[in-house]
Design a protein around this nucleic acid. Structure first.
Lengths: 224, 224
DNA sequence: CGTTCATTTGAGAAACCTCAAGATTGGTGG
DNA sequence: CCACCAATCTTGAGGTTTCTCAAATGAACG
């Protein structure tokens, strides 16, 4: 995907460091961005000032697609680690897409994947208790790394407990307690001194924990 | 948008009644659907059988875009009222889009709007108490009607309390209590006998209720 | 080596869920 | 037209999860 983009559209590259913003909510929409390396969080800001992490983007993911319809970006895109971000003018991309339909396919698939991911988040938020949501978060991160060919037995969270909690709809204390509980059950292990590096013996153990912790679903199944 | 589609792409029309499914999770992806009339819910089903309403679609909205990347639909699309749904072959749409770029714009804006909407849902779920989420749900429905030129001072919910609760991440009892509270404060009114028809004196009152009920946000703002 | 920020842990409070009992409604058949 | 049935909805009481508040510990940095 990255190669395809490189070969067909003018690209601007930019190195970012943790805390840098790629674009901000309200800013006029003009370009889409693609993660070449690093990790990014998307932060939504409500009218009343409530702040919400609504997504995490990894290598190959697109940023800024929520700005296409409104004409301005719908959230802040913030780097949470050093990385490289590519930007593409949306109008240039559309021009190129008419000549190279594969570009269109790539863009549509990226948007589609993000929709699926959002729905997964909603599902977790609504149906899982706090502990399981944290486990699901770690599994998501591990899966994301694996899909990109990176080692996923050991992950570094570039987020504070507060950020993770915000993303998962719970307090930082609840995140801490959940991680402690996971470590006690040997589903995860803390490496070294810092508590940001987490070893994941097996992803299956995480999945088991989620299913085991999930509330009985007689009620949930009563939708019919 | 509907006219544009009609003029440029082969369309298949279908009348649906409440409970009919447009497509089901896992079904092979081939077409996108557009709501001509009626109301639809998108239901996600997790591996373990947890069921989650992840979206509501109104006139002009597209259905099935979460199937583009995976090659199969990611959720069930279920009519919750009588309506008409149009279907368009995705490959035919792409063909037509190369000749009529406006089609592409329309599709991208539809996906973009859905991303924004999903992020709004996440924000509500994570930052608002149950009462305010119900108020936000009613405001969303009223806004959706208004944007489509329909009267929005009186809305008919084609969903049970259980479905609303599922969508909003709470139990049906909590939905009931929230509606009772809203009615007591005269933010909404029940019409007639049934409890499915709700009168909304002013959307502003709903907004005020949400802001008033929102928890103080010192904690939430501590993301920096 | 002290300061600051992040994290952990505990105890009490609050929101929400669960369970249960009645009410209300809409539909169906007598 | 009325009575009954099934489904939905409301309301209450008590339990559970999660949040809030507070304090202590640990790590990072000059």
């Amino acid at each position: 995907m990255l190669q395809l983009l490189e070969a067909t559209v003018p690209i601007q590259r930019r190195i970012v460091r943790a805390g840098d913003t790629v674009f901000q909510v309200g800013q006029s929409f003009g370009s889409l961005y693609v993660v070449n390396s690093g990790f990014f969080k998307m932060v939504n800001l409500s009218n009343e000032g409530r702040e919400q992490v609504v997504g995490l983007q990894f290598k190959g993911d697109w940023l800024g697609m929520d700005g296409i319809a409104a004409g301005h970006y719908g959230c802040d895109a913030v780097a949470i680690d050093t990385g490289e971000i590519w930007s593409v003018r949306y109008d240039a991309l559309m021009q190129a897409a008419l000549r190279t339909p594969a570009l269109l396919t790539a863009l549509h698939e990226a948007m589609s994947r993000e929709l699926v991911r959002d729905h997964d988040s909603l599902l977790s938020l609504c149906t899982l208790p706090a502990d399981a949501r944290v486990a699901g978060f770690l599994r998501y991160w591990a899966d994301a790394l694996e899909q990109r060919g990176l080692r996923n037995d050991q992950i570094t969270l570039f987020m504070t407990r507060a950020e993770i909690g915000n993303y998962l709809g719970m307090t930082l204390e609840s995140v801490s307690r959940a991680l402690t509980k996971l470590a006690r059950g040997d589903v995860i292990r803390f490496i070294e001194k810092g508590r940001r590096d987490i070893q994941i013996p097996t992803v299956e153990a995480l999945t088991r924990f989620i299913q085991h912790t999930a509330a009985p679903l007689e009620r949930a199944a009563a939708l019919h």
